[in-house]
Design a protein around this nucleic acid. Structure first.
Lengths: 152, 152
DNA sequence: ATGTATGCAAACCATTTGCAATGAC
DNA sequence: GTCATTGCAAATGGTTTGCATACAT
């Protein structure tokens, strides 16, 4: 299975990061990463905390926040802020290949593959700025909301 | 002056929107739009409220929030959430022509012209989704932070 | 005259912080 | 043994809400 291989890669990246930065490799941190890897789309702190609880793994919210910061700094996840009040996260390797279509009406976020655009963005000349990753948001109205608007 | 013409256009767009939606054309709403038009870059509710106060125009924070919502809905401004806790806004016609280079280290946001990319993004096939505007964020490290990192 | 918009203050809630206890090194 | 990390609870602060008053229509 390819996903298993990918996960080993991700876990290793996390371990290398923790070792290099002299941070501790705690059970909590790896449990949280494991849990995130099971989520295919976006998630927020609340959802993550709940899932961990369901798996019978209790962690404090403070620890979840702390770990999300570490994972973001490590480059494994990235943060989005859509219409919702809570910050949303996503595994970076999943996010790289799509744009986010955000409906201004209902807040739904759809993903759109845009393979070639990625390379064009990477090719931008940014002077002294060293790009690490990017996110493209397109705001507008989704099909459902358009229909709903016509009805009225 | 071209800017004056642009502002008339924007003010008219706002008026049309308010009339169409049967919302009231209050002094506060126009004063807030005036103030925003003077700001060339990003701003948050706090900065805006402060500037209005400096101009001797007192409005409650609730009204600023309300007006920002109306202006966003009207399509005149768009919202960003960078590293800071407060939501940042920007005049939409200014934002359309540049990408945002966000430094993950210090949080600074630089703007980068990217004229041709805009058209490519507009050309994306999004199915039933009707795009209205977009925002491109590139995360990475700015020149200053890179230097600072080397020194240590 | 009617009902929306405003101002103010209180409430809300995601996130951060302080501190004692735990556990990775 | 040392000190980063955790858990818990309290604090923080941006944003939202409720309600009485003002005012656009």
């Amino acid at each position: 299975m390819d996903s298993k291989k990918k996960y080993t890669e991700i876990r290793d990246q996390f371990t290398n990061y923790l070792v290099e930065k002299k941070l501790r490799r705690t059970e909590e941190r790896y449990a949280i990463l494991d849990c995130i890897f099971q989520i295919t789309g976006h998630f927020d702190m609340c959802m993550l905390h709940q899932r961990l609880e369901e798996l019978g793994f209790h962690v404090s919210r403070a620890t979840v926040y702390n770990t999300l910061d570490v994972l973001e700094d490590c480059g494994l996840i990235l943060r989005h802020q859509f219409m919702t009040q809570a910050v949303q996260y996503e595994l970076r390797f999943l996010a790289e290949t799509h744009a986010h279509l955000v409906c201004s009406k209902c807040g739904t976020v759809r993903e759109l593959k845009e393979g070639e655009l990625k390379d064009r963005i990477r090719a931008l000349k940014m002077g002294r700025f060293s790009p690490e990753y990017h996110a493209l948001y397109v705001y507008g109205m989704c099909g459902k909301c358009k229909k709903r608007n016509l009805r009225k």
